[in-house]
Simulated scan of single mutants.
Amino acid sequence: MKLLLCALLLAGATFAFRTQSTGVKGKLVCGNKPAVGVQLKLFDEDNGPDPDDVLDQKETDNEGNFLLSGSSMELTPIDPELRIIHDCLDHGNPCQREWVIRIPSKYITNGPEVKEVMDLGVLNLEIELDNESRSCAQ
């Protein structure tokens, strides 16, 4: 009986996890030039002992354009964020500037396929954000 109860609890917990997906696109520039080869990472930011999940990672193309999407199985809603790691106006600092942009919950889809991609439009990386940090990991 205990074995059956444990099996039922485990099965219930398995079904409680659900696949959620998100996506983001845009174009990056540094001044009036396309920001080519900028590293982008789409994460599900997790608190506590569970490490952040990388949903997708890419670099901008020759025009500065990007499109990232991905999914994760979670019990609670995912907390997606885009991390942009760049050298635009870094003033000779050996570490790269890192921006973190939170993706609103309206762009989270239940299931593995993204239904609505967040469009950031054109972002000029010359802007200095109050909360930006530095990334020395290449």
Rank of each mutant, 00 (worst) to 15 (best):
V36W: 04
P77A: 06
E126Y: 14
N65F: 09
E98H: 05
D90W: 13
C6E: 12
D52G: 06
G92F: 04
S69K: 12
K106F: 06
I127Q: 15
I78T: 04
V100D: 13
T14M: 15
T76E: 13
V122E: 15
P34L: 03
T109F: 03
R97N: 06
N65E: 07
P104N: 04
D87K: 05
P80N: 01
L82D: 04
L9G: 09
K25Q: 06
C88D: 01
L129N: 13
Q96A: 11
D90Y: 09
N32E: 12
P49Q: 13
L68K: 01
R18F: 13
N47F: 14
T19S: 09
V114W: 01
L4W: 10
K33V: 11
Y107F: 08
L3A: 12
A137Y: 15
N93E: 09
T22L: 04
M73A: 05
Q57P: 03
E116I: 12
E128G: 12
Q57E: 09
S72C: 07
P104I: 01
S135A: 15
D44Y: 03
L125S: 09
L55D: 06
I85F: 05
A7Y: 02
G26T: 01
P34W: 03
S135N: 15
T109M: 04
L129A: 14
P94V: 03
S69Y: 05
I85L: 07
T60C: 09
Q138H: 15
L67D: 00
T60P: 07
G121L: 09
L10S: 08
D90P: 02
L3W: 11
N93F: 07
G64C: 01
K25I: 10
L9D: 07
S72W: 06
N110P: 15
K106V: 12
C30D: 00
K58W: 11
G23H: 02
E116W: 06
C30E: 01
L4Y: 10
V54P: 14
R102T: 11
S71N: 09
T76I: 10
E81L: 08
L89R: 07
K41N: 11
G12Y: 07
L55F: 04
V38G: 02
P80L: 00
T60M: 05
L8T: 10
P80E: 03
S21E: 04
A7K: 06
S69T: 00
D119L: 09
E63T: 11
R134N: 10
L89V: 13
C136F: 12
A16G: 10
A137Q: 15
E132G: 08
G111Q: 09
F17P: 00
V100E: 14
D87N: 11
Y107P: 00
S105C: 06
A11I: 05
V122M: 14
M1H: 13
I78V: 03
L82M: 02
N32D: 14
D53E: 13
S105R: 08
C88G: 02
V100K: 08
R97P: 02
R97L: 07
G48Q: 05
E45Y: 12
P51M: 07
D130P: 10
T76K: 10
V100G: 09
L28M: 02
I103D: 03
P80G: 02
C95D: 03
G70Y: 00
E81D: 08
N47Y: 13
G121C: 10
C95H: 02
D90G: 08
D56S: 06
R83I: 00
V114E: 03
E126R: 15
L123T: 14
G48K: 01
Q20I: 02
E63S: 09
